[in-house]
Design a protein around this nucleic acid. Structure first.
Lengths: 274, 274
DNA sequence: GGCGAATGTTTAAAATCAGTGAGTTTTCCC
DNA sequence: GGGAAAACTCACTGATTTTAAACATTCGCC
């Protein structure tokens, strides 16, 4: 039997940690003196502690280790836990690599350009599925404001329920100025359709969108869309052609708070060589 | 101006998080109604929030992001922070790779052998510098018990101060059964030397030791040392030849608690191909 | 116009994970 | 008796999430 400090020296695990393991229940001392409350550990427990350390090294949480230490655990469960852990680590590795390459990009740009670019504020996110009310049209970017006006009139007064506005554009390759557009409001709840030009539908979830948020002056078409497309090209991302890009407009209605547009372009996972 | 829930939908950041950011001080609402305490956000703040998200994505903590968001931050500081982050991620990547390969090894062994081997309980740790009292000798493994006995007699009665026993062996290639040994006690404090065969010295820190803990029967030489060496060879680790290996004995003196030996072999960092 | 129900919003506190650190009191051992 | 070592508690880490209790609003319904 060892006192806690001896056991700590032997195992090179701190006193705090040993006491914590006791509290947690993962390694109870073999004996506790009733009078003094002193913890006494047996030599056997070095073995257990060693296993704990090993599993910890492998990245398991104490809870999982507790399961793994149980005598009656089957080999299949062990294998399962190991495999789940393997996947988890694979994924984390992927994320870290991603992060690293982003940081390296930024460093490179900082060195080359000597400043932090607005264009760097490109950001990946997932956008969940949402319900929209919309109509389709043809037109140039300059016509978007009137299309919004039209939508507003068609939908009517229940503005409270809808937020925000968005435009989706399908690339129409034939004509560079004119696009096939869908002008929409995002809906919180169901809504009664009052027109047969309008349709209500679900926009599917996009697991990966490259987004860029920019302030825009009203009635001046923004360059955000082009900026983002350029950034994507520079960074060797592949644009998902089967899903349209979106421009989501955010405006402080009542005030002079300005208008912002967030361009969202669905992309596919393409690992690029750094 | 947006209410918190609108702002949350717009930015796809949860209410909880927005409130937390307010508390944290990283993104205070543009206005708070005195009467109701309601938070109101401006459209501008979407931009700030987007920057926050981007930095978070890069792996920065909120504290660092707060620094990065300050207007007066110099480009040099930004670069510094990015570079520190880069190193940090590099290191984490390394660790994760290590972990992954360990898990994959275990999985492989589980599949091949159908059980979790005792030999797998090999564990890497660093061992800090320590003071020892020892004497050197020549002998076979069978002679170790008597050498310990001799050491005990030489040192005398102050057993309380010393823990644990250890043997260090330098490979003596000429003779397979006989080793050059150093028999030692690990010392907690200074001790008066009573003999000129004994010497007190520091054992240097070993940043990386492969260790294996095994129960041993008294007077039966253990195979732990051989097991560990075999494992190392299987796993393509390189043994540091300039430092001796150690066998650290742990025994519950007073009881029938058994004796354990932990074999420690210093190794060098060699990344192995999987 | 009033009622209840269902949301929506606020605040604050506690849990998460695996400990570390500081500070105080009790016990051990010589 | 004195100093080391044991115990204990409380606070803190990071970035939220969860929970609970207290108000506010909006809805249908009568």
């Amino acid at each position: 039997m060892f006192k806690i400090s001896e056991f700590s020296r032997l195992s090179r695990v701190s006193l705090k940690t040993l006491r914590y393991y006791d509290d947690f229940g993962i390694l109870k001392p073999a004996k506790i003196d009733k009078e003094t409350g002193y913890r006494y550990y047996s030599a056997d427990q070095l073995l257990t502690l060693n296993r704990i350390l090993m599993y910890k090294d492998l990245g398991f949480t104490l809870q999982h280790i507790q399961q793994l230490l149980r005598e009656d655990i089957s080999m299949e469960s062990v294998r399962g836990m190991l495999q789940r852990k393997e996947n988890e680590i694979q994924q984390r590795l992927e994320e870290e690599r991603e992060r690293l390459s982003k940081i390296q990009d930024r460093l490179l740009l900082l060195k080359r350009e000597g400043r932090v670019e607005k264009e760097q504020e490109v950001f990946m996110k997932s956008v969940e599925a949402q319900k929209i009310i919309s109509f389709c049209s043809h037109g140039t970017v300059e016509e978007i404001p009137e299309l919004f006006h039209k939508l507003e009139q068609l939908v009517g007064k229940q503005k409270r329920q809808l937020l925000p506005q968005m435009v989706m554009w399908k690339e129409s390759e034939s004509n560079e100025a004119e696009f096939e557009l869908e002008v929409a409001y995002s809906l919180k709840q169901e809504i009664a359709i009052s027109s047969d030009i309008l349709n209500v539908r679900m926009l599917p979830e996009e697991p990966m969108m490259a987004t860029l948020l920019q302030r825009v002056d009203p009635f001046v078409p923004s360059t955000a869309c082009i900026d983002l497309a350029k950034w994507l090209e520079d960074n060797h991302y592949r644009i998902k052609k089967d899903q349209p890009g979106r421009e989501v407009y955010v405006q402080s209605l009542e005030e002079n708070g300005g208008t912002y547009v967030e361009v969202q372009i669905p992309i596919e996972a393409v690992r690029r060589g750094s």
